[in-house]
């Protein structure tokens, strides 16, 4: 499949904006992510993995420079257009208010529904498909806050799938999963990159899984940030440092 530039960062500085100051976490980034890439985002806690992912989908502002999504600057994209291009899976827990797993997945179709959020037949087909792909069919009518961590994670990934975006960002999606589910998840993400030509970025501390399933790694440390192919990982000093000598 042809590779397309999905996300391009040009001299982008990312971080938070407070009322009277902005705090830069990642400075002057120049990176390009292509369709069909499954990129593992690695770095120790607090180095800015979540900041990067949140900035890429517009949840945090770009402090300097620009991020281009499908060749359009992110600041010029309407929220609803952006929602059709990038889906994110965050670490935060949601639930309550009678929300079921199905409701959460259905929210993924919100960019495509009318202003009364009415689900038509084609919306339901896509939602059902996302539920099936993530293997939560048997649990779709359970309440979100009664799901196990693993099932909850799969539900939110199904929500991101239902959003039908060319780009998927996942913030530590494997954090609460058991061993087999972790592999299932990474196999699924690999498949999405290969078969649907999606650009997938996932941060994780499961380095061995990233080495097994990703084709690229974004290695972040406090002093550097580099995008390498998986084959280079074993010789990359920063990556080995993050691995703490156990790789």
């Amino acid at each position: 499949m042809d590779k397309k530039e999905c996300i391009v960062l040009k001299d982008a500085t990312l971080g938070y904006k407070k009322t009277n100051a902005s705090i830069s976490i990642l400075k002057h980034l120049n990176l390009t992510f292509y369709s069909g890439d499954f990129v593992g985002v690695v770095g120790v806690n607090g180095v800015g993995k979540s900041t990067l992912l949140k900035s890429l989908c517009g949840l945090l502002p770009v402090l300097e420079g620009e991020i281009f999504i499908d060749e359009q600057p992110i600041s010029k994209l309407l929220l609803n257009e952006l929602a059709k291009k990038i889906a994110i899976v965050l670490t935060e827990k949601i639930g309550g208010f009678n929300l079921t797993a199905y409701d959460a997945v259905a929210a993924g179709q919100m960019p495509y529904t009318n202003s009364f959020n009415r689900l038509e037949k084609e919306n339901r087909l896509i939602i059902d498909q996302a539920i099936k792909i993530c293997g939560i069919t048997a649990h779709q009518h359970k309440l979100l806050n009664e799901l196990s961590d693993g099932l909850f994670q799969k539900t939110i990934i199904a929500k991101a799938l239902a959003q039908q975006t060319p780009i998927m960002l996942l913030d530590e999606p494997s954090a609460f999963l058991d061993y087999a589910s972790k592999h299932d998840l990474f196999i699924l993400l690999r498949k999405l990159a290969d078969e649907e030509n999606k650009c997938v970025l996932a941060s994780s501390h499961d380095l061995d899984l990233l080495l097994k399933y990703c084709n690229k790694l974004l290695v972040i440390s406090t002093t550097s940030i580099e995008l390498i192919s998986v084959s280079e990982a074993k010789t990359n000093k920063v990556f080995l440092e993050i691995g703490g000598g156990f790789i």
Partner: peptide
């Protein structure tokens, strides 16, 4: 209902 971040990510 999904929180502010997810609401914005689905285009609200």
């Amino acid at each position: 209902l999904l929180g502010e971040n997810y609401a914005q990510n689905v285009g609200i």
